[in-house]
Structures are given as structure tokens and as C-alpha cells.
């Protein structure tokens, strides 16, 4: 790569008690924090109702495709990495790298809904609908709400792409705002993956 700036410089900046740099616009952080609390409340309610009937939930968990869950986790993690690299590239003034990284991130991001459909459609076909049990109700609604976030994230990344591609002086704050949103989508999936696929 041609960038002469060591990427570590950005990350190793010491944060003092009162000051620091917020990545992206602060209104986006307002949204993220609220969204995390809302999802948090949903996760806790899932755990509560799971506790009421552990066998029902464990029985439901057996029907999930573990491998799609793992692949989707890796897809989102990798996509997140490329978005982070794109933001770093944009900050270092390396627009070409940023665009390339963002393209890879978007391609991986599009893969997520595709895999979700590969996971959902055979299940729905086999009669495992949200009405099947409380587990499947939670499963479809929570992953569905997350999917809405993924699609919104892809739209936002599209706007970021346009900004990097066409703007004379790309607004780095906007690029970071899109990136931070995408990382939130990633971290919510990490929790969904643990709660629906992995825990026993």
C-alpha cells in the first residue's frame, strides 16, 4: 500500500479524561446507544421467557442451521473489518484504497441477506413459521429486525460510497458515521448468534 501513515497512529492516540475523539456524528451515537438499549431489553426478555420453558427453546435451537450462523458471523465480522479499513483509508487521504475496501465490505454485506434467505426459506417451507413456538417467534422477529438494520446499513454504505466517489473533498465525518452504524449491526449479530445458535 502507498499510504505512508502508519494506521497504528490513529488507534494509539491516548484518550485523556475529558477530551477524546468521537468517531462519526454525535447524533448517530445517540441512535446507536438507544438502539443498543432497545435490543438489550429484547435480549433480556428472550432470556426470561427462555427460562420459563428451557426444553421448548432447546428443541427449537436444534432446527437452526449452525453453519449458516457461523458463516454469517464471519461474513459480518469481515465486512466490518473492511469498513474500518475504508474509514482509515479515507482519513489518510487514500481515496482509492477506501473505495476498494468499501466495495469488498458492501459485497460481503449483500451476502448476509442472501444467506439469511437460504436459511429462512427451507424452514418456512418445512412449517417452522413464527407461529410454531415462542422460540421461532423470537427467532424470526429478532433476526428480522436485525435484517432490517442490515438493509438500512447497506443503503447508508451506498451513500458513503457516493460521497467517496463523487465529492471533491469527501466528508470524513460522514464516512465514519456510516462505518460506526455498520459496526453496530455487526455487534448486534454477535449477540444474536450467541443467544439463538450457541447457548444451551
Amino acid at each position: 500500500m502507498t499510504s505512508t501513515n502508519s494506521p497504528a497512529v490513529n488507534l494509539a492516540k491516548p484518550a485523556s479524561a475529558t477530551s477524546g475523539r468521537v468517531s462519526g456524528e454525535s447524533s448517530m451515537w445517540f441512535f446507536i446507544i438507544g438502539d443498543l438499549f432497545i435490543f438489550g431489553a429484547y435480549f433480556v426478555s428472550y432470556m426470561y421467557y427462555r427460562g420459563q420453558d428451557q426444553q421448548l427453546f432447546l428443541e427449537g435451537q436444534q432446527h437452526l442451521d449452525q453453519w449458516i450462523g457461523v458463516v454469517n458471523t464471519l461474513v459480518l465480522l469481515t465486512s466490518s473489518l473492511f469498513v474500518a479499513l475504508a474509514a482509515e483509508g479515507a482519513r489518510n487521504g487514500n481515496r482509492k484504497t477506501a473505495l476498494r475496501m468499501l466495495t469488498i465490505a458492501c459485497a460481503l454485506g449483500v451476502l448476509f441477506p442472501v444467506l439469511k434467505m437460504i436459511e429462512w426459506l427451507p424452514k418456512l417451507d418445512a412449517g417452522l413459521t413464527p407461529g410454531e413456538s415462542l422460540f421461532f417467534m423470537y427467532y424470526y422477529l429478532m433476526t428480522g429486525l436485525h435484517l432490517v438494520h442490515v438493509i438500512l446499513g447497506l443503503i447508508i454504505l451506498g451513500f458513503v460510497f457516493r460521497e467517496l466517489k463523487t465529492a471533491k473533498h469527501p466528508n470524513i465525518g460522514f464516512v465514519e458515521t456510516g462505518a460506526v452504524y455498520w459496526h453496530m449491526v455487526d455487534l448486534l449479530w454477535l449477540l444474536l448468534f450467541a443467544l439463538f445458535y450457541l447457548m444451551r
Partner: peptide, 25 residues
């Protein structure tokens, strides 16, 4: 194990990808 590992993963995403390690307190 799974919940602790996930919490660690979330913490790392927040800290490094979302750059909260350089954010205000």
C-alpha cells in the same frame, strides 16, 4: 463460556472498530 466470549467480542468491536478507545470518557 459462549456469553462471556460474545461479550469480549462485542467489547473489542466497540473498542477498535467503533474507535471508542479514543473517545471521550
Amino acid at each position: 463460556t459462549v456469553l462471556l466470549v460474545s461479550a469480549l467480542k462485542v467489547h473489542l468491536v466497540v473498542r477498535y472498530f467503533m474507535e471508542v478507545n479514543v473517545a471521550p470518557r
